[in-house]
């Protein structure tokens, strides 16, 4: 057995993995202080008119089952550590889609005392979807962008969250929600 054939098998396995990943992005939705507009539009993409199930997207309840985190809203200080925790609970490889102007830059809430305003400052974002709120079609378009970038071989990188929140660990032990 030469290394060539091993490489060949490894390639096939990798291709299969990538194919599966592209065709079955299970999503979890987190609202970190949004006005509900984006959330309702995300929910609308599940409904008959848009039906993202035909692309393999399924909205999951538990972060443990999800591949894609769809985050909306200008990250409020209260929701910040929850957002990071949900992100950390997701198994690798994981991707983040920021939906709505608030998640991209703060939108109208830019400068409010209780918001961070940019999701990218907290967790690494893969796809940005602007709009206030984006139409459901635009959200699907964003997801397709993500899948496209995966197809082209953008390596899923393991990313360490920059914000170190020490209280989080203590809280997780005592309070096992999510």
């Amino acid at each position: 057995m030469s290394t060539d054939s091993e490489n060949f098998y490894a390639q096939i396995v990798n291709k299969l993995k990538n194919w599966a990943r592209i065709n079955s992005p299970w999503a979890i939705h987190f609202n970190s202080g949004s006005c509900n507009g984006c959330d309702i539009e995300i929910l609308a993409t599940l409904t008959p008119r848009y039906d993202v199930e035909r692309l393999g997207i399924k909205l999951q309840g538990s972060p443990r089952h999800a591949d894609v985190l769809i985050a909306t809203g200008p990250v409020t200080l209260q929701a910040l550590d929850r957002l990071i925790r949900v992100y950390e609970q997701m198994p690798d490889p994981k991707y983040v889609i920021a939906v709505g102007s608030c998640a991209l830059s703060g939108g109208v809430f830019d400068g409010c005392y209780s918001v961070i305003g940019d999701l990218n400052k907290v967790i690494p974002v893969d796809v940005y979807v602007p709009g206030c709120p984006p139409r459901p079609e635009a959200i699907i378009f964003g997801v397709v962008q993500l899948l496209d970038s995966l197809k082209k071989g953008k390596k899923p990188t393991k990313i360490v969250v920059s914000n170190d929140v020490p209280e989080l660990i203590i809280e997780e032990k005592s309070n096992g929600n999510n």
């Binding site: 299969l16 993995k17 194919w19 599966a20 990943r21 065709n23 079955s24 299970w26 393999g56 591949d67 198994p91 690798d92 490889p93």
Partner: peptide
């Protein structure tokens, strides 16, 4: 696809 993806996760 779902199953293969989950197995690879």
């Amino acid at each position: 696809a779902d199953t293969i993806k989950l197995l690879a996760k």
